[in-house]
Nucleic acid binder design. Structure first.
Lengths: 355, 355
DNA sequence: AAGTTGTATGTAATCGATTACATCAAGCGT
DNA sequence: ACGCTTGATGTAATCGATTACATACAACTT
């Protein structure tokens, strides 16, 4: 025999936990291991009597199949990788919960990878998937793993099922779950215009980001629809974070001629921006109206409460997980799912002063 | 032979990805698989020449060890389970990031389980750990898996290394990483008193929660130190959520005699409470001072900016992960690590009006 | 020179499931 | 009654690593 057999794992006072193996169940139920395996995988192919005996033996022994052995043989991990750019970002947490819920119900576990802007980590996770640690992946980061934003990727070749969530991945032939960012942004501009605003600033997301591009397009669509010219002076750079929102606020405060409304492409930026405006003695919405995007929890309790675009985050997560599961189990999957957004009107937007 | 050999995974247009196996590396390097394995695990036990050949073969083939096979044989998963009560709670995200960072550097992956208050899920994850899917677990939920808050648990018997983070687990002989909630709460009360407050309300966490118990003790400690009587009337129930903070705000608004300061045991409650007060026409801090606990990102940008207790969340996560890794690798681990908190003074607390 | 020790490597058992294939009995058509 | 299908079950190969044990050889001792 090998080694010390079933030695305790660490030290003598830890009871030597013997987990039941399929052999133990088979012996107890007086069947072969094949039958036990079949009871779990394809119960209809086992006689009722044998099935009952096996089930009883499983209950008695507390048998749980060893996932490593199962994976090794069947090449299925029942694990899904979720790749996201920043775990600490509020926006993702509710999405993650939606994903987790749906995966859990289907018997899948979730492994999270926070890319953290590090190519090194990305390479690691590319290897991760390649090594067969997961059956599939949900990508929230807007590009394939191991692929530069514009270059050729390796993840597609890895050949595990992928689903893109929120940030569509151009050119990738995988299911995309998203909202209509462009239409939602246009909608917001129209709302601001309907309140009487004519000088509307735009606080952008990070350059190159697909959400940013779509929302920016929507911003311009909105201006066009209401017959306003696009003024590059009114575009303020941001990157979706609170800090960049505060910086954008400084930018505004420093201006001689200020816009009457500011459309921030994330709630975090809107809240940061409002903070700066208020600290500088400007009032929202009396002096400047502010609108956000996402409808995170804090949007409703900000002061003033934030007018924004509601994204069904939990549902987005659920839909992505469901799509991936369909893919994994060989069911047909729509290539694109678009969930509805909603304009949420709160106190941070009001008609401009008419003086 | 078995089945269809190395058939493509899904459909014919997916290139049949052949991942290199240890055999392939061994053949290419003209050594046995044992030597390849040793190069990876104990390079010092392999001659320099053989090692070089193997390394080259690994690079050439892009070999990555199959984790399922490795786990099956060695009983090590290089996976850690993180159990938390609510993934959607802002408070946890930065902690998770700290955990992930440290685990990643040590070559461990992270599986997240959102308990979501469901005993069913808990049972599932107890089985999860029992089945050997993870080497260890970090518990943020304040009790052992599969154990009721006061009852006997099964997780301890499962025998995998555990670490408790934030919510100490009384009676469990495992490393606990936390802050001194009691001292921090007392500190805040003293700060409020130093500003001149004498009627200080307390918005509690969920009943029975260990954080709540400690902070409540600290609240009473603080009162005692400054010679104020404890008044049960000034305790308002909450559960750490924004919503409960808003409800607590209603409670205050409805009172004839209001406290001059409110200490909320979470920032989320403080922000919700301020929302309600402001909506009711009360001013913060002019009419009521408000203090929080945690120092989440939004505390600094709230209006008014929130005075609170800063918790080093990332560091807490890192410390917990490091402790678990020590445990997993057989190094000695301190039974209790307490990280420092800091009182962050912002605008939401001011001296009470003297009229 | 024989014995001892140590180092490097190979051989093959092993981890615990899944599953292709073999076997066997019962049911059925003719 | 004979062959054939169908259904239930068992046997054993297999997944891809790790690692106990065996072996081979070089370097020292005495």
């Amino acid at each position: 025999m090998d080694e010390a057999g079933q030695a305790e794992r660490r030290d003598p006072d830890t009871p030597p936990v013997r987990v039941a193996r399929i052999q133990d169940v088979a012996r107890l139920a007086e069947v072969s291991t094949a039958t036990v395996s079949r009871v779990l995988a394809t119960p209809e192919r086992v006689s009722a009597e044998a099935r009952a005996r096996v089930m009883e033996a499983i209950a008695k022994t507390g048998y749980v199949p060893n996932p490593a052995a199962r994976t090794l043989r069947s090449q299925k991990t029942y694990m899904v990788l979720v790749v996201l750019p920043d775990l600490a970002n509020t926006f993702f947490s509710k999405i993650l919960r939606g994903i987790e819920e749906t995966l859990f119900e289907a018997g899948y576990g979730m492994i999270i990878s926070d890319l953290d802007g590090s190519p090194e980590k990305e390479a690691h996770f590319a290897a991760f998937t390649a090594a067969g640690r997961v059956d599939g992946a949900i990508l929230l980061n807007g590009h394939l793993i191991g692929q530069s934003r514009d270059g050729e990727g390796s993840a597609a070749r890895i050949g595990i099922p992928l689903v893109a969530l929120c940030e569509a991945i151009p050119g990738a032939d995988i299911p995309q779950i998203e909202i209509d960012n462009r239409a939602a942004a246009a909608h917001m501009v129209q709302h601001l215009a309907a309140q009487g605003h004519r000088r509307i600033a735009y606080v952008s997301g990070p350059a190159g980001n697909i959400l940013e591009r779509e929302r920016f397009q929507g911003f311009k669509d909105g201006l066009e629809k209401i017959g306003l010219p696009f003024d590059p002076e009114l575009v303020i750079p941001g990157d979706f974070t609170i800090e960049s929102g505060m910086a954008a606020g400084q930018n505004l405060v420093a201006r001689a001629v200020r816009p009457t409304a500011v459309f921030c492409t994330s709630d975090e930026m809107a809240i940061g921006l409002m903070r700066t405006l208020l600290s500088a003695g400007l009032r929202v919405p009396e002096d400047v109206s502010v609108a956000g995007f996402d409808d995170i929890e804090f949007a409703a309790v900000a002061e003033p409460a934030l007018t924004t675009i509601h994204q069904p985050r939990r549902e987005l997560g659920q839909a992505a997980a469901a799509a991936l599961i369909d893919l994994l189990q060989g069911r047909p999957t729509p290539k694109r799912i678009r969930l509805e957004t909603e304009l949420v009107v709160r106190a941070s937007v009001a008609p401009p002063r008419t003086n």
